[in-house]
Computed example of a mutant assay.
Amino acid sequence: MSALLLAVAATTFTAQPARAELRLCNKTESQVGVAIGYREDTEWVTEGWWNLPANSCETLVTGALVSRYYYIYAVDYDQFGEWGGRAFMCTREKEFTINGIEDCVARGFERTGFFEIDTGEQSSWTVQLTEPVQGGTGGR
């Protein structure tokens, strides 16, 4: 299977009041499920699932971004691909809000690898999930 690509872009707004948020845009032709992880005060929190239809966007965090780093895991329901990384956090199959990222399996959750988004000092950020690589390299 070809690797899935991720495009990340900071968004700035001009000529309007600044909107502060973390948005995710599904730029694929598939339905995508998204989970997010972030630090809230002194504790890690993971939340999911946002189900985004093909070629749509969703606001995951409203208001000014209080953390510099956010973590995202996404699943392509139609092509069975995923966007993940090395930051392990807790998830589950059904809708969830989980406090803490330690001992996921022992607490009855799945241990899932999220990718990191460094928003810098921006108050708004948009993440774009893009189509699988189309390059003639017959993937598995």
Rank of each mutant, 00 (worst) to 15 (best):
M1I: 05
S2D: 13
L6K: 06
V8I: 09
A10T: 08
A10I: 03
A10K: 11
T11N: 03
F13W: 06
A15R: 09
P17T: 08
P17R: 08
A18R: 05
R19E: 10
E21W: 07
E21D: 14
E21Y: 13
E21A: 13
L22I: 03
R23K: 15
C25I: 00
N26W: 02
K27Q: 13
T28E: 05
G33L: 14
G33A: 15
G33Q: 14
I36N: 03
Y38Q: 12
Y38G: 02
R39Y: 13
R39T: 10
D41P: 03
D41Y: 14
T42Q: 11
W44R: 06
T46I: 01
W50K: 06
W50S: 11
W50V: 01
P53H: 07
P53A: 15
S56D: 05
T59L: 00
V61C: 06
V61G: 00
V66H: 07
S67M: 11
Y69S: 12
Y69V: 03
I72L: 14
Y73W: 13
D76S: 11
D76T: 05
Y77A: 14
D78V: 07
Q79F: 11
Q79G: 07
G81R: 11
E82T: 07
E82H: 14
E82C: 10
W83M: 07
G84C: 10
R86V: 14
F88H: 09
M89Y: 12
M89H: 06
T91F: 06
T91E: 08
R92Q: 15
E93P: 05
E93R: 04
K94S: 14
F96K: 01
I101P: 00
D103T: 01
V105I: 13
A106P: 01
A106V: 03
G108S: 11
F109V: 02
F109D: 04
R111D: 14
T112L: 10
T112M: 12
I117H: 04
T119Q: 01
G120E: 06
G120F: 08
Q122A: 15
S123R: 06
S123K: 10
S123M: 05
W125C: 02
W125Y: 15
W125Q: 10
V127S: 00
Q128C: 04
Q128R: 09
Q128G: 04
E131C: 00
Q134S: 12
G135F: 08
G135W: 10
G135T: 05
G136D: 10
G139I: 00
R140K: 11
R140P: 13
